[in-house]
Simulated assay, not measured.
Amino acid sequence: MTTDPRVANPIRSEIDLDSNGKQTGFLRLPHSVHRSAYGWIPIPIATIRNGDGPVVLIMAGNHGDEYEGQIIVSQLIREIEPERVRGQLILLPMANFPAAQAGLRTSPLDGGNLNRAFPGNPAGTPTEVIADYIEHTLLARADYLIDLHSGGSSLLYQGANMLAIEPRDAEEGARLRALLGAFGLPKAFLHPENPVHAASAARRQGAISILTELGGGGTVQAGLLSEARAGLLHLLGFIGLLHGALVPERVPASTRFMRVSGARHYVYAYDSGLYEPLVGLGEHVAAGQAAARIHFPDTPLREPVTLHFASAGEVVCQRVPAMVQRGDCLFHLAEEAFQ
């Protein structure tokens, strides 16, 4: 007789994912500290289930300083009733709860970045344990993952965007394009696979993933919330999970399909100082064009350093804080796909 060599994940769910109806509660991650010897970390979770049908995991708070998705997921938990569902919605409004509670990209408990922690470790740090549970318990039963991100406190994206891993073949590409079109946000970026991302965890478990990037800059924009919520509801109707008045009749926008192609589409600081952007969001830039200057007020006679774009493309994301250190991302570009 063989046994599963995997260590059991210590998280215990207060809700029964196999039962019909709407339930809310917490995933209890045991956490013994000086303040609370027998304590647990309360990760909010909800399920809305009605019989057989597609299973969708909708997640926000993967990064704790990205607030747009946390608001949208909380709204969906309040708004959607089981009689409007065929299948199951599993909803995590604050997936990395310690990070979301603190308003930080990474967990204050272990420095963990949840979207760099998959497939996780059931015997590891709190962030690794959360990643393991999401991949091997929640995504293992899901057909789709919707992971709601934004630029957080350090980056700002132009408008509402979607991201997806490059498809592996033409059939998967056609399916992905249909799903992204049904979500209907203005831009969809295709990007290479990264095994530590939630999107790759979904792929390993046989689910298809769509990630959003909704503004950012540590703010919440009402228009982006409305646009993303409408697109998400339309997508849920498109796959046959949601029906009724909540499903919009049309998508928010016609989607432009774009591609992010690795290092050439990014600009990074190589010096510590104050950065002056020389272009803005939405601009089309040429290879070799000046992107930013780094200034050095602590050495005022030192000339600023000018950084340049390595590739042509459209500016889709820009750093927000002016103070930078070597290694900080200042811009990221995308180019048209399917030309």
Rank of each mutant, 00 (worst) to 15 (best):
P82C: 09
D169P: 07
T137K: 14
G151F: 13
R86D: 04
L89C: 00
E172M: 06
L138Y: 05
N96F: 12
A142N: 07
L76T: 01
L155W: 04
L180W: 03
D143I: 03
I72F: 03
L180I: 13
L148T: 11
A60H: 07
L104G: 00
F97K: 14
P126A: 12
G181E: 07
G112I: 14
E128P: 05
E128R: 12
G152S: 13
Y144V: 09
E171R: 12
L104A: 09
R175C: 07
T137V: 15
R177F: 00
S154M: 04
A100V: 02
D110G: 09
T106D: 08
L163P: 00
E128S: 11
T137L: 04
A170K: 01
N121R: 11
N115M: 06
G120H: 09
T127Y: 09
N113G: 13
H136W: 13
L179Q: 03
I71G: 00
M162Y: 04
Q75M: 10
E128H: 12
A131V: 13
V73W: 02
R177T: 07
R177L: 08
N62M: 12
P167T: 00
V73C: 10
I72P: 03
A160R: 01
E83W: 08
P126V: 15
I58Y: 00
H136K: 11
R86Y: 04
A178Y: 00
N121L: 02
R86Q: 12
S150G: 07
L76N: 06
M162R: 03
R86V: 08
R105L: 08
R116N: 10
I134E: 01
G181A: 08
P98Q: 11
M94F: 14
A60T: 15
A100K: 03
N113A: 10
Y157M: 12
G64F: 14
R168K: 06
A182I: 03
P93G: 08
S150A: 08
R141V: 14
N161L: 14
L76H: 01
Y157C: 10
R177G: 01
T137Y: 10
P122W: 02
G69N: 11
S153I: 08
F118L: 02
P82W: 07
A142S: 15
S154Q: 08
A99K: 13
A60K: 06
A164W: 01
I58V: 15
G159A: 02
